[in-house]
Amino acid sequence: MTEINCQSRATVLSGVALMCLGVACFGVNDAIAKVLADRYSPMQILFMRNVLALPVALLLALGFQGHRALRSSKPGVHLVRGVFWILATFLFFTSIKHVGLAKSTALLLASPLLIVAVSAVFLKERTGFNTWVVVISGLLGALIIVRPGLAGFDPLALLALLAALMAAFLMLSARWVDETESFWTLMLYLTASSALVSALAVPFFWVPLQVRDLILFAGVAAFGTAGMVLMTQAFRLAPATVVAPLDYTALLWATLFGWLFWNEVPDLITYIGAAAITLSGIISALQANEGK
């Protein structure tokens, strides 16, 4: 019994470590994207990231699942999910260029709360009073950061909130995918559909590439893909209530990188709003687990 408990504890700790590492990878991904956003459109960054990540996603899918990973019964759903992902990332990259890493990341982390709200309003899922209190508290935290109607209001901060909404739609659209499809199929099709969608749009945004920036584009592709794989594996190894709250460590990385490289220091009001979003998100995750 003791040996089994030790193995279980080790597995959970592995999940925690992978989640923290995955979130850190996304933090690096966002920081590199902010550097590139000074010279390129977010759409061109997305196109390059997806094109470079697609061969990696294909090799991973074939390596872990073989040719079965190439088959999907609902390719149209994957295309729709690719549109959601492109919109979410385009809006977020635009936001971090103008608003800053920490503030944009804090607003993006409202996505889990928006999933609950969208599910209740549009999908008619039953949601209790306590859940609504938590969701509304978190969304009020987002409004504190955005500050509509006040002197510190920056309309571009709304882009990060829209990105959170698109990310919520992306997560909810996973329900339309065939349940028998593996993670590797989902990752491959999401990367491929995003590459296709961005390829259709990128001619309107394209500027000549600088050779010195190729390593940065490769970094965005590498860290973005690594973050997705690591975080997914974390959820497989440890309970969601353990690893999901660790997603909010993204605020630490965003604040650190913003301060180190761009001298961005969020004000007290932003910290208060971020704290409300984080606390509400953690409570919402715990409530969701209790309801299972």
Rank of each mutant, 00 (worst) to 15 (best):
F90D: 02
V116E: 12
G15H: 00
T249M: 14
V220W: 01
K97L: 06
A167R: 03
L114K: 02
C20V: 15
M231K: 10
L237V: 09
A199Q: 03
E3A: 15
I215Q: 14
R126V: 11
T241G: 03
I272V: 15
A53W: 01
L113R: 09
R68V: 09
L230S: 07
Q210L: 15
A33G: 02
S137L: 13
L156Q: 10
L123G: 06
C25A: 11
L159T: 14
S104F: 02
T232V: 11
A24C: 12
G100Q: 02
A274P: 09
G22F: 04
P239G: 05
A238D: 04
M48N: 06
W259T: 11
R175Y: 00
N289F: 09
Y248V: 08
R175C: 00
F217Y: 01
L256C: 11
V177Q: 10
G66I: 04
A222F: 13
G128K: 10
R175E: 01
F261T: 09
A69K: 08
Q65C: 04
T131S: 12
I277V: 12
G22T: 13
T232M: 09
E264I: 05
V243D: 03
S119N: 07
A274G: 09
G273T: 04
R236A: 09
S41A: 13
F153D: 05
A285D: 08
D38Q: 13
N50S: 12
Q287G: 01
G76L: 04
I283K: 10
C6K: 07
R212C: 03
V243F: 06
G63L: 12
R212L: 15
G149R: 03
L252A: 12
T185H: 09
L54W: 02
L286W: 01
F92T: 04
L172G: 02
L162R: 00
Y271D: 00
A240D: 08
V51H: 01
F169D: 02
S284L: 06
L260R: 07
V99A: 01
R9K: 11
L246G: 01
I144D: 04
M43V: 05
P245Y: 03
S95C: 13
S137F: 14
L18A: 14
A88W: 10
Q287A: 05
L60F: 14
R68T: 10
W253V: 04
A201I: 15
G138D: 11
L46H: 10
Q65D: 03
L36I: 03
I283Y: 04
A110V: 08
E290F: 00
A37P: 00
L101K: 00
A275L: 14
L196E: 01
I32C: 02
D154C: 10
L260T: 07
A222W: 12
T270C: 08
L54Q: 01
G138S: 14
V211T: 13
I96H: 04
R39K: 08
A222M: 11
Q65G: 12
P75V: 08
Q210R: 14
M228Y: 11
E179A: 12
A174K: 07
L162G: 08
I96Q: 04
A102K: 03
S182M: 10
P203L: 09
V135T: 07
A53I: 05
A275G: 07
F217G: 07
H98E: 13
D178F: 06
T180L: 10
N130T: 13
L107Q: 10
G141K: 11
S73V: 07
A285H: 10
F183G: 04
T89S: 08
F217C: 07
M19Y: 06
V265D: 11
L190H: 06
L18K: 05
